[in-house]
Amino acid sequence: MIALESYILVAGLLFAIGAFGVLLRRNTLILFMCLELMLSASILGLIAFSRYNATAEVAMMSGNLLVLFIIAIAACEVAVGLAIIVTLWRRQQTVDVSELTALKN
């Protein structure tokens, strides 16, 4: 059996890479993809913890159901975020975050 900390290490690495991409990239689409990576990393952590806390009575159902709801919310979030990106493109013809300075000053 793989130890719990290995899964947490993978989840943490994926989360760190997602945050790295959010800091590094300027294209809003890739930024958004990196956000999705971070969300999936947190899902992996949740599933790992729920598996390792499972007993015969509580067979890790609640943790997995929480992940089910998180996936549904993530789908909502992607749809709304991409709609915002499309509207942004239609108005300003750019997806570069360093050019979106309407709220500056």
């Binding site: 059996m1 130890a3 719990l4 900390e5 947490i8 290490l9 943490g12 690495l13 989360f15 760190a16 890479i17 945050a19 790295f20 800091l23 913890f49 598996r51 390792y52 806390n53 499972a54 007993t55 015969a56 067979a59 890790m60 159902m61 997995n64």
Partner: peptide, 29 residues
């Protein structure tokens, strides 16, 4: 930032400060 996060993660996991980790039960969920 990436290096800091990875260092923090490794420290948290392997320094032994966070206690022992759970072991998986044999029951198939």
């Amino acid at each position: 930032a990436l290096a800091l996060m990875v260092t923090g993660l490794l420290t948290l996991l392997y320094s032994g400060e966070s206690g022992t980790f759970a072991v998986a039960g044999e029951t198939a969920p």
